[in-house]
Computed example of a mutant assay.
Amino acid sequence: MTNLSKSKLFKTGNVLIKAEESKSFVKQVAKISNQFIELKIVNAMVEDNIYLNIVDNNIKQSYIQKLRSKNKHLQIRIVLQGVVEKLNQVNNKKTTYNENEISVEYSQDINESLLNKEGSHIKYICITLNEEYLDENGYFRDIFKEPFFMKFYEPNIKNKFYELFNREYTSGLDKIYLKNKTTEVILYVLEQIDNKSFKVDGLDEEDIRRVKKAEVILQNTFNEKITIELLSKKVALNQSKLKKGFKEIFHKTIHNYLKDIRLEKAVKYLKENKYSIKEVSTMVGYTNQGSFSYAFSSKYNCSPKAITKKSNL
C-alpha cells in the first residue's frame, strides 16, 4: 500500500471545498477525485471540542493514510457501508469496523493509520469528543474512567443515519442540523452502553466477577497451555456461562482474546531484538512457529520478520 498523508491526499487531483466558520462552529465540505479516491467528506466542529466527520469514500487504489495523533478522547464510529480498518502505529494492532457496527472507544496517546483497500466503498460517521469536553462534563467521566472499547451490531442503523450522506451541506441551517444530529448519535450510543453495560442474561454479579477473574488469569498465563475446561475449573464457573459471559463483557471469544494477548506480547519481544522468531513464538505460548507466523500476519498485515527489520532501522 502507498503511504499518504492527509494533506498530500487532498492536494492530489480536483478538490471542491465549501467552508463556513464562526466562533463555535466550523464546517468543511470536500469532494475529491484522483487516482486514489472518489471522496465526499464533511468535517465539522459542531461545538467546542466535539468533532463530526461524515465520510463517503470510493477507493480506486490501495493506500495508507496516517491520522493526526490524539490525546485522551472518546470516539464513536458508525459504519453504514463497507469495512473500515485501522492500524495502531505503536503496537501494530489492526482494528476492523464492520458494516452495521457501532464502536465506542475511550483511549489516549493514539497514533494510527487508516488502511484503505482498492475496490472498497465505505461510508461511516465518526464523532470525537476531546479531553477538554470530557473533563467539563462529569457524566462522561463517570462512564469512561479507563480505556474502554465496545462494539455492537445494529442491523437497521442505515435507516437511522443514512440521510447524513444525502444532504448537500450548502444551507445556512447546517450548523443547527449537524449539531442536532451529532447530539442524537451521542445520546443513542450512551443509551446503548447503559443498556448493555455488564448486564448478561443468566449471570449474576458473582458469575460476572468470576468471568473477570478468568480475564486476569489469561493476562498472567498467556504463555501457558490453557483450555476453556481448565479456565472454567480455575474460576469455578461452568463452561457455558464462562464463554457466554466472556464474549458479552470483553466482546471477544476466549480464544480470540488469548490470541490477541499473545500477539501483542510478541510485538513487544520482537522489537527488543533479543530473540529469534522461533524463541518469541515459544515465549508467547505457540508450539509451532508456522502457526505463530500465520496468526501474526493475519492480525498485523506483516510478517514477524518485518517487525525485527523495522526495529533495526
Rank of each mutant, 00 (worst) to 15 (best):
V267S: 05
Q192I: 08
Q65E: 15
I261H: 06
I228H: 00
H251N: 14
N288Q: 11
T170R: 03
K66T: 14
H255V: 11
G245K: 01
K117D: 09
Q289K: 10
I102Q: 08
I50Y: 04
I41L: 10
G245I: 00
K199M: 14
S7W: 00
Y300P: 09
Y139W: 14
I122E: 06
F149R: 14
T170Y: 04
H255I: 10
K247N: 15
Y63K: 02
Y269M: 12
S276T: 15
S291M: 09
N166I: 02
L263E: 01
F292H: 00
Y294Q: 09
K72Y: 09
P304S: 06
K8M: 09
D135L: 15
P147I: 05
L87R: 14
F152A: 04
V284G: 01
L67I: 03
E85P: 05
L80S: 06
I50C: 07
S171Y: 08
E85R: 13
Y139K: 15
K243Y: 05
V211E: 00
N159R: 06
E85V: 10
Y153P: 01
A44T: 07
S107C: 11
N195A: 15
L134V: 15
Y106R: 00
S22A: 09
K151Q: 15
K241V: 04
K72M: 14
I217Q: 00
R167G: 03
L9N: 00
I226G: 00
H255A: 12
L242N: 02
V185G: 07
T253S: 15
I54Y: 04
M150C: 13
N256M: 11
G119S: 01
I64V: 13
E132G: 05
A295M: 01
T128V: 12
I143G: 03
Y300W: 02
A266R: 06
L115R: 06
R68K: 13
K241S: 06
K310T: 13
E163W: 02
S293A: 12
Y63T: 03
L263W: 00
L178M: 08
L218Q: 03
L87G: 05
V104E: 07
L134C: 08
F149N: 14
K160H: 05
N130P: 04
F222C: 03
E136Q: 15
G13Q: 01
I32L: 15
D204H: 05
K305Y: 14
I125Y: 08
E21A: 10
K11R: 14
D207F: 00
N116G: 03
K199I: 15
N58S: 14
A214N: 00
I249A: 02
I32K: 09
S113C: 06
S33T: 13
G119E: 01
V26S: 13
I193K: 02
Y106S: 05
I110L: 13
Y275V: 03
L164Q: 01
N58K: 14
Y97W: 11
Y300S: 13
V185E: 06
L114R: 06
E184H: 11
T96N: 07
N166L: 07
S113N: 06
E248C: 07
T170P: 00
E163I: 04
K233R: 12
R209L: 10
K23G: 10
A266K: 04
K94W: 04
N180I: 04
Y139S: 15
S7C: 02
L313I: 14
T128A: 08
E105R: 11
N34I: 07
